[in-house]
Amino acid sequence: MNPFSVQTLGSEGDVEKLNLDAQTRYLAGGTNLVDLMKHQIETPVSLVDLSEWEGASEIEKTGNGYRIGAMVTNTELANFAWREPSLSVLSQALLSGATVQLRNRATTGGNLLQRTRCYYFYDTAKPCNKREPGTGCSALTGMNRIHAIFGTSEQCIATHPSDMAVALMALNASVSVKTAMGKNRDIALREFYCTPGETPERENVLEQGDLITSVYIPAGTRGTQHYYKVRDRASYAFALVSVAAALELNEETIHSVSLSFGGVGTIPWYPKKALEILQGNKFSVQLLEKAIDAELADAKTFGSNDFKPGLLRRVFLSVMLSLAQRQKKQPGHEGALYENR
């Protein structure tokens, strides 16, 4: 690990007093950043320690929604969301990710900013445009079983690793940010991430020194919810494919549907085309197939991940049919899919 200096943030109002340059990183739980520093992938000259940041570890429930402080841990958020039927999919996504040890340490803000687990991003002996722009993408012709099928470019096909962000995207969350100049701004999560394009090193719309202060989830009924994650082992593995979904039927019609896909995009994938086809229409298997096929029309595979479109299609159909079954059995149901939840 390279030497670095440490600054401390005591409160949100102190951001303007920090010395923030391109070589400064905010350090929250550190479960990803410290690891990247050990690998010499991140080599900050200065860290801003957030562990004493007052007021950033609270969850506020209001009439309009939920305000999640940036330093709320993944465990705290999972446990809270578990008790809120309208946030069930978020709890399931969080509990699907990492391990208890990591979730106890990892934070809401940090989870959103975690870096890809692409093998070549981590292997400093190999070219990687995300780690070292202009060197090339080893995954394009290499081992790309875990890589993306949506939002890729000739420069990068690395998958976004977060489960939490997938659920938050389905829940239409937004990110609140304090800029280095002390200004506040809110960004819809669906507009927060950048696909790699020609600049894979740029992963989101944050500017230098921007600090995520909280995440906001609007309240509302969303119907029956489920997070289904397919991975190479039963626990503690990143998603090959995941589907976050919520469905509310009004008799046979789709009253509301929320969707997002993980493990398949260079960013947590918001399936606009599928949603446009589904929303407000009569629920049927044919409609589901039409929706997922429209989304998959844009998918591009790279050899080892050729299985992903088919897998995503099957998982999507299975999840949506299960949600519809529960809605038909119990109209107006709100919460997790399973019978006794």
């Binding site: 578990w82 399931q92 509990l95 990492a98 039963a234 626990s235 939840r341």
Partner: peptide, 24 residues
């Protein structure tokens, strides 16, 4: 009664729940 992903999503045995919670 903190949830795990197996206790959250389905009925499970204590052994299955322990295995999930110890996966780290």
């Amino acid at each position: 009664s903190d949830p795990s992903i197996v206790s959250a999503q389905q009925d499970c045995s204590t052994r299955e729940d322990i295995a999930e919670r110890m996966s780290g």
